[in-house]
């Protein structure tokens, strides 16, 4: 076997963490999207109680901060007899937390569809459900995409926090190797570069999409 020259000899170990980071991002954002839709619609509900519950959820999960929630799930939940794997905790907390932020996007986009569109639907005698499904949602979903893209990038960056509950993601592999090799400069330079390579293509794709959308409108 050929020895890989430094600093690239560190890559195979770090690579194992990348898999965990990508998994967390995918599952976490899927859960976050679902939560965002439920809470976002909940905050627009006709029923006061549902609106209240959704708002409390949003404020609670945005206010108590991601890392505290991770610690709470990791250290406190077992006392209630609830046992999750670190991976499950990571996905769950990321999804619930970023879903709370996403609910604002859902709510904002739906409210951003002009009232006159609803009136046009009424004038064509559509049912409230038809107006939501055929007129408001298609327009709102398109508006949601760019901010959800930004949230996805934030979530990808947020996955680094799971290293604090010993889930072996990219950052965790970095801290492990720092202890064993003390080559901090090489390790964390590589870690940052890998995160950049994961996140930046998303940023570029998002900008391309936004430009396309702006063209489509004019």
């Amino acid at each position: 076997m050929i020895a890989i020259p430094p600093p690239f000899d560190l890559l195979p170990t770090l690579w194992r963490g990348v898999g965990v980071t990508v998994q967390l991002t995918l599952f976490g954002s899927a859960l976050a999207f679902g939560v965002a839709l439920i809470i976002g619609f909940g905050r627009l509900s006709r029923f006061r109680l549902i609106r209240l519950l959704a708002t409390v959820y949003m404020e609670l999960f945005r206010g108590t901060t991601l890392l505290v929630q991770l610690f709470w799930a990791y250290f406190v939940l077992p006392h209630f007899g609830v046992e999750f794997t670190e991976m499950q905790i990571g996905v769950l907390v990321l999804g619930l937390n970023y879903g709370a932020y996403g609910s604002e996007i859902v709510r904002g986009s739906i409210l951003a569809v002009p009232n006159t569109q609803i009136e046009a639907g009424i004038a064509l005698n559509m049912s409230p459900w038809q107006i939501m499904r055929r007129i408001i949602l298609p327009q709102a979903l398109l508006m949601m995409l760019p901010p959800f893209g930004n949230l996805l990038i934030e979530l990808l960056k947020g996955t680094a926090l799971v290293s604090m509950i010993t889930l072996a993601d990219l950052t965790f592999q970095g801290t492990l190797m720092r202890v064993s090799t003390l080559r901090s400069l090489e390790i964390f330079s590589l870690v940052l570069i890998i995160y950049f390579l994961l996140a930046y293509p998303l940023t570029l794709a998002l900008r391309l999409f936004e430009r396309k959308m702006a063209e489509g409108r004019s």
Binding site: T116, A120, M126, R134
Partner: peptide, 25 residues
């Protein structure tokens, strides 16, 4: 009703703007 500001559905092509309600309503 026809509105001052037209209120067409911006996400649908012209034909679909006109067929949407006859089909679904």
């Amino acid at each position: 009703m026809v509105f001052q500001q037209f209120n067409l559905f911006p996400h649908m092509k012209i034909l679909r703007n006109v067929t949407e309600a006859p089909i679904h309503v």
